[in-house]
Computed example of a mutant assay.
Amino acid sequence: MDINTSFSSSNTLLTQALNVNNEKKNIQNTQEIHTPEVQNPDLKVEFETQSFTSEFGFRTDEKGIFQKDLNHAANLPLSYEINIKSVQSIAKELMKQDENLSFSKIDLPQLLNTYYSALKAVEPEFAKNDNVYLNRGEVAGLYQGFSTKSGDFSSEITRLYKGENELNSALTHNQNLIPLNLENKIINFHFDSAINNTSQNDLIKPYLNKESEVSKSGLLMNFIHKDIKSANEEINFFIEPVNLNLNSHQNFYKMLQGEGSFENYVQEQNKERMSFDLYLYVNGVSKQNTQSDKLNLLYQQYLNYQKDLNIEEFTRSSSIYSLYTQALNAEFKQIKQEASTQSDQEQLNQINQTRQNSLENFYTQRQKQANLNKIVRSYMSVMS
């Protein structure tokens, strides 16, 4: 996607148009002069604030903080300070997904607005326009993420995770679901990585104060970076296309909503051959304590193991299979109970409407700015 650089240059275009006959039109706009108020009106002190161009189409100050035209273009609170180093880190992760992408082609305002719209819709703290610093306890108590109807980021939000405990419980259940070819795709805000082991997180450092509290703009940038990075690093022993992964999410939520029987699903998974999940159970493998690379190796072993197994006889007569299904049914019942407390429909309706309004406001503003740019360019062509 190409960045619309007209938004970063619109103010410059308008200034040039209005001052086309001004004697100062040849002064380079790399410096802005600010004249503060002083007690003696006869005494004026001028301070120079230098700005620098960036590969993203927006200017930064000497500290690497983007000027506020980026905030305007992305519909972010003007109090937010966005550091260019964090944007560069995000851009590098995006370029791993598309080898033809470059810094200059990234639509930075749209990227920021997409994530910010979701964040402020779900967590009321981000609906405020301030950029306060939050401590660990405050961050841990925020909403930590959400799930959607289809599993895709932009789909309708159907479930919320309030606080670290709810999120961690859902993530734990997810580890048990994936070997069964089910998944609860969670849009994780990754707040934990912004407040824990911050010495190992270079991206978050510019957003910390002396008390190691993190600003809300830092939480936003960390969310964007970790979400894209985790997608790049996601390794699943089921090598499947994205749409099939989304099917595993959708099938899971259909059963949560009573549109299918979980018990019947488990039986179907073990009808013609032993499921990988059952294979792990039979061999005493803990899904919680086994790393992905180890699971990959076990999956290859499983493919060879199940060729000579009479699964029908095993499921009919084995006490191990009976214990296995009992454990799964008990866990699914717990998951269903937890999900029922995280899906208040009235709250979800409001959240989805808020996010939609935010996205629409962004595109409306973008269209207005594009129309203004056309007028300015026409005016300049006439006056030149």
Rank of each mutant, 00 (worst) to 15 (best):
M1Y: 12
D2P: 03
T5S: 12
S6L: 09
L13V: 12
L13M: 14
L13C: 09
L14Q: 14
Q16A: 12
Q16M: 12
Q16P: 01
L18A: 11
V20H: 13
N21S: 12
N22G: 15
N22V: 05
N22I: 06
K25W: 05
Q31D: 12
Q31Y: 10
Q31W: 07
I33C: 10
T35E: 11
P36A: 08
V38L: 15
P41F: 08
D42K: 13
T49I: 11
F52R: 09
F56E: 03
F58T: 06
D61M: 02
E62G: 07
K63C: 11
K63S: 13
F66L: 08
N71P: 07
S79A: 14
Y80K: 09
E81P: 00
I84T: 08
K85C: 13
V87M: 09
A91N: 07
L94Q: 10
M95E: 15
M95P: 06
Q97N: 13
E99V: 09
S104Y: 11
I106F: 07
L108Q: 04
A118R: 05
A118E: 01
L119Q: 09
E123D: 13
D130S: 13
V132F: 10
G137H: 07
E138F: 03
E138P: 09
Y143C: 04
G145L: 00
F146L: 03
S150M: 02
D152I: 06
S155V: 01
E156Y: 08
E156N: 10
R159I: 02
Y161R: 02
N176E: 10
P179F: 00
L182G: 01
L182C: 05
I187T: 11
F191C: 05
S193D: 14
A194P: 07
N196E: 15
N196T: 14
N197C: 06
Q200K: 14
Q200E: 15
L203W: 05
L203C: 09
I204T: 03
P206C: 09
N209M: 12
S212D: 15
K216M: 08
S217T: 07
F223P: 01
F223R: 05
A231D: 15
N232A: 05
E233P: 03
I235E: 15
F238Q: 11
F238N: 15
E240Y: 06
N243G: 04
N243Q: 12
N245I: 08
L246Y: 08
L246M: 08
S248N: 10
S248Q: 12
H249K: 06
F252D: 00
Y253G: 00
L256D: 00
G258P: 01
K271N: 10
F276R: 04
L278K: 00
L278I: 01
G284F: 00
Q288Y: 08
N289S: 11
Q291G: 09
S292D: 15
K294N: 11
L298S: 03
L298G: 03
Q301P: 00
Q301K: 12
Q306G: 02
L309H: 04
F314T: 11
S317N: 15
S319T: 14
S319Y: 01
Q326F: 03
A327H: 04
A327W: 00
L328F: 01
A330Y: 04
A330G: 04
K333P: 02
I335S: 00
A339M: 01
N349I: 07
N357L: 08
N361M: 11
F362A: 02
Y363P: 03
T364W: 03
Q365S: 12
Q365D: 12
I375Y: 06
I375V: 14
S378K: 14
